[in-house]
Design a protein around this nucleic acid. Structure first.
Lengths: 94, 94
DNA sequence: ATAAATGTGTACTATATACGACATATGACA
DNA sequence: TGTCATATGTCGTATATAGTACACATTTAT
């Protein structure tokens, strides 16, 4: 724990409290460093911390109406429908 | 201005500073009330305030990997490609 | 000309965020 | 049984957030 704490640049005592949910989740930057250190997906850890990456937020903010509509549309869609859209766009010819 | 301020529940002096960009943008709640009062799209005003609605964030946080991938895929997509996806999903048979 | 309405500047505040410092307690293991 | 790492408790603090309070100058209407 001390090693992880040192590598991500926080105090061991703080990390301990974070793990036990004793304190509010860390900042986005710290959460991302922790994710990398643990080999976890940053977006998933951020979600656990009740946050959404600033990078994604920026993308949304550039075209708020389009992305707001899209996300609300997909709110109840099953996982595989969203996956299909991702693939369509990736391989798509736009 | 005093009337709008009163209707959305803030001090006129504060609204004046907000308009002039003299202070940081208001909270999400206040921004949404202002949007309604002005007949504007809340998501657009929130974007101007450098924010993304908590509702959208919650949707993303429930399935972080899917939505993170999707949004990053669409980062450079032209508007009409996104629109097409929105319509596809809306009318879609999933 | 003057009373009312309007916008703005200055100062202040309460709560939350994101930790650090340090003392101490606990548990496993050699 | 001593010691090492980890766990927990208490306190402190700098920065950000989201405004309020009030005085004041200017404009507008009559």
């Amino acid at each position: 724990m001390r090693q992880v704490a040192q590598r991500i640049g926080v105090e061991p005592a703080y990390l301990s409290k974070v793990e036990r949910g004793d304190v509010a989740p860390p900042s986005e930057a710290t959460t991302v460093r922790l994710a990398h250190e643990l080999g976890q997906d940053p977006d998933v850890l951020l979600a656990m911390a009740g946050k959404v990456s600033g990078e994604l937020q920026e993308i949304i903010r550039k075209r708020p109406r389009l992305f707001a509509d899209l996300i609300r549309q997909l709110r109840e869609a099953p996982d595989d429908a969203i996956l299909r859209v991702v693939r369509e766009v990736r391989d798509g010819e736009w």
